[in-house]
Nucleic acid binder design. Structure first.
Length: 110
DNA sequence: AAACTGACTAATA
DNA sequence: CTATTAGCCAGTT
């Protein structure tokens, strides 16, 4: 069926799940790919609502500046960074990721 | 049902 | 580079 009126969050999770390991996507990019252009904020809120066990690689979503966005819970930023580094993503001296190099490019040869 | 709450971004100064 | 402004929507209380 067309028009499966899933919650906005479900659409977002669907996109995030497609981000391959070792790659990152920005909130705005995820929003656009989910068919929700301009709703980058909602992506962040959706990820915040995630629970363990949802199998969504939330760690691969970062902000447009190429950095891990600040979270409410302390320690989570470092956790996210560690998870990404474990996938091979490299942070520069200012804790930023080179989107030009690690940004996910859908429909593009790996 | 109204108010509150948030893991953002792009443009401008 | 930082600060400010405006646009954004849905799940919770």
């Amino acid at each position: 069926m067309s028009s499966v009126r899933e919650g906005t969050y479900a659409l977002i999770y669907g996109v995030v799940r497609r981000i391959p390991p070792g790659r990152v996507a920005t909130y705005g990019q995820v929003a656009r790919l989910a068919g929700l252009p301009g709703r980058a904020r909602q992506v962040g809120y959706a990820l915040h609502a995630l629970r363990e066990g949802d199998c969504v690689p939330w760690q691969r979503v970062i902000n447009a500046r190429g950095e891990v966005s600040a979270r409410a819970e302390p320690g989570m930023v470092e956790l996210q960074r560690q998870c990404l580094e474990a996938e091979g993503v490299v942070f520069d001296g200012r804790s930023r990721i080179d989107l030009d190099r690690y940004g996910w490019r859908p429909r593009s040869p790996r």
